[in-house]
Amino acid sequence: MVKPIVVGAHYGLKDWIVQRATAIYMALFSLVFAFCLLGLPEFSFSAWTELFSAACVRFFGFLFVLSLCYHAWIGVRDIWMDYVKPVGVRLALHLITFFLLAGYAGWAIRILWRL
């Protein structure tokens, strides 16, 4: 049994919770979205864009994008923390990951909202 010694830093509880909350949201979204796809009459440009231009798909899709990026940030950061020991390299990888994910979020939101 590990006995944590409280010295005032945060121990990643927030990230732990956010990782799981975003996972649950994305799982539910995936299921609903999969059923929406099954209900599509045909896979054509008009049907496909109509699905994505629906207000609720945009609303919940936006939340999906945010969840995905936050979830991926925690997961990838954990990978760097586990396997990359030199502090400089680790910091660089953290920053690259962060900026990539921020950029992806912007890109995805643009795709969703320009329709």
Partner: peptide
């Protein structure tokens, strides 16, 4: 992820 975003972008 960038590859998937590319595809989504293209499709829409």
């Amino acid at each position: 992820l960038p590859f998937l975003l590319c595809l989504l972008d293209l499709s829409l």
